[in-house]
């Protein structure tokens, strides 16, 4: 059964230095609050998984949380480059970052395989792509029935997966809707799962085929209203696009980035506090 915990307690208890951690959310329901808490608690040497590293991983990588990154697309969606991600890969700042690069088809399949308790993903992929030359984990396998050559890659089984969802009930059952990405698969692939939610409701009232993650597959549920901001949470808020654009400037220089992180994340003690400071600094920019 999931325990309903404050986010800082869940991160403290479940995410340790050196752990393999996935924060998922396919540009919708990105667990920003949890990412901030991991930074605040000064975690180091994490192996991070994420199909689409975007702002939250730019922040984590720039703050030196990660040693290794497994991903399939890294950018500021609809805006451009991730400057901290690029600085880490191009210049090893603030520390060297190993990368393991895969495609969406592969990495989404790797979560399915992980959730299914399998050691590998099987797919038709990477034909003619140089990715298979640089990632030694991408191997060929022959189908024993047809003789077809297929691609095999290792499944993903994180120590901890973190996602954000819309609602939980008091027992910790979670309801999630809209663009689901690989959140369900990533939760089922992991040893432990932390789910931050917009709110706890008396009754979830899901439609029969709605995506419900039962309490007993989740380790901790944390109530963090706005916890996916600046990304979207369907039914709750839209993407704060102004912030996605502003991030391009904030993150461009190491000094500006560090100053921003210090004021907004390191010197705040919760996501609520962060949002207050963020609103104040946004005011300063516009006034």
């Amino acid at each position: 059964m999931a325990e309903i915990l404050p986010l800082n307690k869940a991160v403290e208890e479940l995410i340790h230095d050196g752990a393999h951690v996935a924060l998922e959310g396919f540009t919708h329901l990105i667990p920003h609050a949890a990412g901030h808490e991991i930074i605040r608690q000064g975690r180091r040497n994490l192996t991070l998984y994420r199909m689409t590293p975007d702002l939250v991983y730019d922040q984590m990588i720039g703050m030196g949380v990660a040693r290794r990154l497994v991903f399939s697309w890294g950018g500021n969606p609809g805006v451009g480059s991730l400057h901290r991600f690029r600085d880490a890969i191009e210049n090893g700042w603030p520390c060297s970052l190993d990368i393991e690069e895969r495609s969406h088809a592969d990495l989404s399949g790797a979560y399915v395989a992980g959730a299914s308790g399998l050691p590998m993903t099987l797919l038709r992929a990477y034909r003619g792509s140089d990715l298979a030359r640089y990632n030694q984990q991408i191997r060929l396998i022959t189908c024993p029935f047809t003789g077809e050559e297929l691609t095999a890659t290792p499944s993903v089984r994180p120590d901890v997966t973190v996602i954000h969802a819309q609602q939980a009930d008091r027992k910790g059952n979670v309801l999630i809707w809209g663009i689901l990405g690989v959140q369900k698969e990533a939760v089922l692939a992991a040893k432990n799962a932390i789910v931050t939610v917009e709110e706890v409701v008396e009754r979830l009232d899901p439609a029969p085929n709605a995506c419900v993650l039962p309490s007993w597959i989740i380790t901790a549920v944390c109530v963090v209203p706005g916890g996916a901001s600046p990304s979207y949470a369907q039914g709750y808020y839209e993407r704060d696009n102004a912030f996605y654009k502003a991030w391009d400037n904030i993150s461009r220089s190491r000094e500006d980035f560090q100053g921003w992180m210090k004021r907004h994340v390191l010197e705040t003690d919760s996501f609520e506090d962060f949002q207050k400071i963020k609103a104040e600094t946004a005011q300063e920019v516009t006034s």
Binding site: F26, S108, R124, L180, V182, N241
Partner: peptide, 28 residues
């Protein structure tokens, strides 16, 4: 859409499936 995660896409779709399903049943 501003990005691939835009709610407008799922709100106006015939159905929204998981990313893993898109790449397996539908594309592959």
């Amino acid at each position: 859409p501003l990005s691939i995660g835009d709610g407008e896409l799922s709100a106006t779709a015939d159905t929204t499936v998981s990313t893993a399903e898109i790449f397996t049943y539908w594309l592959q």
